[in-house]
Nucleic acid binder design. Structure first.
Lengths: 121, 121
DNA sequence: CATTCATTTCGATTATTCTCGAAGTGTCAA
DNA sequence: TTGACACTTCGAGAATAATCGAAATGAATG
């Protein structure tokens, strides 16, 4: 058993609002690029300064973006001496992806599962 | 062969911006609910009036939401006499889901594939 | 061709989001 | 305990987005 299977998130009205917020949090180029960087460097993550250098934005703007991603459960933070390490929050991402996959690929199979998962196991 | 396998969307800067726009388009409660309704009624779709009744918003607001979803390649429209039928744009959704799955589940497997696809084949 | 119906477009208001520089906070090192 | 460093929070301006009612459009129907 590779991973515990997450409990299915029910499609309540509240959950829809929450998933909408998560989508919105990733729905901006700088923030989606942040997610890409953190996923690429998972599970170690990156310190703020490294992300800033990649994106070429001011520290305060970046801080706001990270705060938003954190608030929506998409990234996590840990302090290590003077550095703040950010990492992708895999639990939140898992819930979001499962929700989307469920909505799109189950029921009447609007989107073909194998078209989504073609890239890897 | 159930479905043609879509050509993998390369992770160019331009594509990241496009996927961010798609995520943003779904990143609002009314629009995410619209997508749910259209996926649930796929492939037939729904006429605007039915969606409006479900969401309980004005026609003009709904029209703006539908326009945005259409602009980002998430829904399609067809006219049938006096009625406009909206449907989920499965090609666009497929590209978006494949992108997310690829980012999250390939490479270092930050998110476990089977946690995402647990619900169906 | 006037009317009804389904929906969009227009015009405008309010709310939210993005971004920045400057000031503040927490941590270490000397 | 002073200074440097890594980063956040504050305060504020400018750009986007959401929403609405009213007017306009497009298609059928009498």
């Amino acid at each position: 058993m590779v991973a515990k299977v997450a409990k299915a998130a029910k499609r309540t009205v509240a959950n829809v609002a929450r998933f909408a917020d998560m989508l919105s949090a990733m729905g901006t180029e700088p923030r989606l690029r942040i997610m890409q960087l953190l996923l690429k460097s998972h599970p170690q993550g990156l310190v703020v300064g490294d992300i800033q250098e990649e994106l070429g934005i001011t520290g305060s703007t970046l801080s706001h973006h990270l705060e938003k991603l954190r608030h929506e459960g998409l990234v996590k933070m840990r302090r290590e001496s003077r550095f703040l390490w950010y990492t992708a929050d895999t639990a939140g991402l898992e819930q979001l992806l499962a929700f989307l996959y469920d909505e799109c690929c189950s029921r009447n199979h609007a989107v073909a599962p194998e078209a989504v998962t073609r890239c890897c196991g």
